[in-house]
């Protein structure tokens, strides 16, 4: 059955679709983080990546930063949640090793929306008077052209990633994937040139057979490739499937406090194939 699934590939083959200099969209830590790709991404040669965190980042970008693969990060925040700050990110920021394009969550959603709609910008309220705006020369303040009174408003350009990566519970035999209510994953896929999805399992049927699953389905139209990776979000959780492994996240946070500790953690993680 699996052989007939369009775009079905291995996690290793999927990771090798990420090339140096690409702009990569990565999901927020509760939306389905494709952690199973990480050992392959780290073992591969892609460098100078420009990350876009949708809309915030955690373990996945922190590992890529620690492994020296990242040129810039656009994000609204970087955190390991309960496990604390993102250690490699902090170090890289203080050392000036990566360029940070600080954003705010709805501006990232607006940029993806502009790409989704194929329009040159999206308008967004707020931001005026903030240093977030001041440090984003690519964002502009315009006068609302439909208003006769002064009404300044911020516009942001489209975010068009080369590749979006995320993890979902299910793909079907036609390459459609179930995203449920994690609609930001659809935004990422609409905006990106290529979307690669790891899944817990592939079902021998169509997600369109049932209106309830169809409503939470990202059509194969937007999906370049699918790879099976059981517990593929670990140590993050997956909504409706399994909880986050907070102890493993804390272990990472403790180990990565020093560059040597991070290197040792990463070596073990790659050797274990990214599995618990």
């Amino acid at each position: 059955m699996s052989a007939a699934v369009p775009g079905l590939m291995t996690p290793g083959a999927m990771a090798s679709e990420v090339h140096s200099g690409m702009r990569l969209a990565l999901p927020v830590d509760y939306a389905g983080v494709p952690m199973a790709l990480m050992p392959h991404l780290v073992a591969g040669g892609a460098r100078d990546l420009d990350l876009v965190c949708v809309p915030t980042g955690g373990l996945q970008p922190d590992i890529l930063i620690g492994a020296g693969r990242v040129r810039s990060v656009e994000t609204s925040a970087m955190t390991l949640g309960e496990a604390g700050g993102a250690p490699c990110f902090r170090r890289a920021v203080a050392a000036g090793d990566i360029a940070v394009r600080d954003a705010t969550c709805p501006a990232i959603h607006a940029g993806l929306m502009a790409a989704q709609k194929g329009v040159p910008f999206m308008a967004i309220r707020g931001l005026i008077g903030s240093d977030v705006l001041r440090h984003r020369p690519d964002w502009k303040v315009i006068q609302n052209p439909l208003s006769e009174v002064a009404d300044p408003i911020v516009v942001v350009p489209p975010i068009r990633p080369d590749v979006a990566l995320f993890h979902c519970p299910v793909a079907d035999r036609d390459g459609n994937v179930l995203i449920g209510r994690r609609r930001e994953l659809a935004s990422m896929a609409y905006a990106s040139r290529h979307t690669f999805v790891t899944v817990e399992r592939v079902i021998d049927g169509s997600l369109f057979d049932n209106e309830q699953t169809a409503a939470g389905t990202l059509p194969a139209l937007y999906v370049t490739g699918v790879a099976v990776a059981e517990r593929g979000a670990w140590p993050y959780g997956l909504g409706g499937e399994y909880e986050a492994d907070t102890a493993a996240l804390r272990d990472y946070a403790a180990a990565a406090r020093t560059p040597r500790g991070f290197d040792a953690w990463l070596e073990r993680f790659v050797a274990d194939g990214g599995m618990p």
């Binding site: 915030t56 920021v93 203080a94 600080d102 954003a103 705010t104 309220r125 707020g126 440090h135």
Partner: peptide, 21 residues
């Protein structure tokens, strides 16, 4: 000094928008 903050916190999240709205 920004951007090379000696003490870096996670980031603005949605505050730059929600604080207005």
């Amino acid at each position: 000094p920004y951007p090379r903050s000696p003490l870096r916190w996670p980031g603005s999240f949605g505050s730059s928008f929600l604080y207005f709205m």
